[in-house]
Design a protein around this nucleic acid. Sequence first.
DNA 1: CTCCTGATAG
DNA 2: CTATCAGGAG
Length: 346
Amino acid sequence: MSESSKDAFFVQQVEHWYQYHQRPLPWRQKPTPYTIWLAEIIFQQTRIEQGLSYYLRFIKKYPELPILAKAEEDEILRMWQGLGYYSRALNLLKTAKILTERGGDFPHEVQELMSLPGIGPYTAGAIASIAFGQRVPLVDGNVTRLFARFFGIESPVNHPNTIKIIHSKAEGLVNLSDAPSNYNQGLMEMGSLLCKPVKPSCNECPLSQECSAHHNNKVAILPLKSPKPQKSNRYLYYVFIEKDGKIAVHKRDNQDIWKNLYQLPLLLDTSSIYEKTEFELRHRNLEKMSTIRHILTHQILHLTIYRAEKFFDQNKKKEIRYVETSLLGELAFPVPFQKFFEKILT
DNA sequence: CTCCTGATAG
DNA sequence: CTATCAGGAG
């Protein structure tokens, strides 16, 4: 098959497959710029099963953009609690406020969409394509994987040059479609449901007869990725202080992990093994309530929570807030703290 | 390069 | 139980 007829075959098969196999996801019933945007932000770096209940709670509480724009940041973070990548929640609120101030409409153009907080090339393309029907390419992780296999792209897919190759391929293909929005969604849906990372369903895939990886027995090794950076250790020491049924907590800043979430009063945050050892020696008389290992993408967190009567760091004392135990659920905490509270306050 | 978490494989 | 994997923006 010639390259151009192979491309036409590809587009036609994707569109046809999507027509019969798409999942009935909530934002597909009646797609609006707002629902598509909200869904795309929630599902960045997040699998459908993991984020679906969050999407449903958001759309119920904030059915329209101006309602979301009026929400408090702490409330949004509480709604986002447990989803991870908390800057997404902060940017969601920022963009809602910006757009509402400008009159409440989403821009139609990719470039303008990309100037909004939290909207990068993929999300801008998704809104332009799905909500406004524009003929723009859409490349997410699913599409990258499917392309790498179907077209036999053997350079690492996280390299800038490979990304460029995939984007230009995506652009060429979307131009062959007569329903760009459905074609784009079909592509991602096929990547997600058939061309899965492990054990892809090639036998059910209408593309397999022309798929490079399928023919060359390379499905299991494509796409290629360059190795991940190694994780560093980080040691965090907290105190659990309970006074008159209230717990001492304070808010993190937005310069680091767990942006603007709450945590227990922090005594030490270090990556130095010497500092860690010295600190533990100095505090060996304190009761260790809990030690937790929590793994992030680039670091392994070692949390130690001591029981204490009062907070002894006078410099940070003013940042501490005492919260009723029953009201802890109103504040957003990182997952390790949620688990700690569950254990302690049953 | 940095941000998070849950699912699943070993 | 530990390790690996998946998923875009700044």
